[in-house]
Computed example of a mutant assay.
Amino acid sequence: MSGDDRLTDDELLALLGEAVADGAAVSERRRTAARAAFTWRSVDAELAELLHDSALDAGAAVRSGGEQPRTLAFGRSGITLEVEIDGDALLGQVIGTGEAAAAPEPATVRLERPDAEAQVVEADAAGFFRLSGVATGTVRLVVEQAGWSLTTPWVAL
């Protein structure tokens, strides 16, 4: 298509709505796939940026038996998530400015794994939280509070 023939988002949604309204049978499997694809439209804007990883510091290429805790920091839109992994404990703090700092309720922090049940904890009034029994492997953290959220990229612990 040339640039002039492209549909706007509203026009495309209207055409899709007409197709569905015409009684075209859409399987639940396709609906689920479509919803999943739609959620990825803004993934880059939603993911937090890795600001610091002590495992990447100079001299940390060869780990020294895990004696030093690993620290990570993520940030997005005035919200910073700082975590320290020490053995099987993950300690962290959610630091927010603006709307995130003024939220009346504490943040909820969820540690997700691709192959296991999520661990959920509530941060205290200062944004501190602790998760125990954190095994090594691929994880991401999702922080939610008063209408905003921060999702980290997947990292290997």
Rank of each mutant, 00 (worst) to 15 (best):
M1G: 15
R6S: 01
R6F: 04
L7P: 14
D10P: 09
D10A: 13
E11A: 11
L12C: 04
L13Q: 11
A14N: 08
L15T: 00
L16C: 14
L16R: 04
L16M: 08
L16E: 11
G17L: 10
E18M: 07
E18Y: 13
E18R: 04
A19I: 01
V20S: 11
A24C: 15
V26N: 07
V26P: 03
R29E: 07
R29V: 15
R30K: 00
R31I: 10
T32S: 14
A33Q: 07
A33E: 03
A34Q: 12
A34C: 09
A34D: 06
A34W: 13
R35C: 02
A36Y: 14
A37D: 00
F38G: 13
F38P: 11
W40R: 15
S42P: 12
V43P: 12
E46H: 09
L50Y: 03
H52C: 00
A55C: 13
D57C: 03
G59M: 08
A60C: 06
A61S: 14
V62F: 04
R63T: 12
S64V: 09
S64K: 10
G65I: 01
G66K: 12
G66R: 11
Q68G: 03
R70Y: 01
R70Q: 01
L72H: 08
A73E: 06
A73V: 10
G75T: 02
G75D: 03
R76A: 10
R76T: 08
S77R: 14
G78V: 07
I79R: 10
T80F: 09
L81W: 03
V83E: 06
E84C: 02
E84G: 03
D86V: 03
D88F: 09
D88G: 05
D88V: 00
D88M: 03
A89N: 14
A89L: 04
L90N: 03
L91D: 05
G92V: 03
V94H: 02
I95F: 02
I95C: 01
G96N: 11
T97A: 03
T97K: 02
A100Q: 09
A101I: 05
A103R: 08
P104Y: 03
E105R: 12
E105S: 15
E105F: 15
P106V: 08
T108D: 06
R110S: 05
L111M: 07
R113H: 11
R113F: 06
R113Y: 10
D115F: 04
E117H: 01
A118P: 11
V120L: 15
E122T: 06
A126I: 14
G127L: 02
F129K: 07
F129W: 09
F129R: 10
R130C: 02
R130Y: 14
G133E: 12
A135W: 12
G137L: 11
V139Y: 10
V142P: 05
Q145N: 00
A146Y: 08
G147I: 07
W148C: 12
L150N: 02
T152R: 04
P153Q: 00
W154F: 15
V155L: 02
A156P: 05
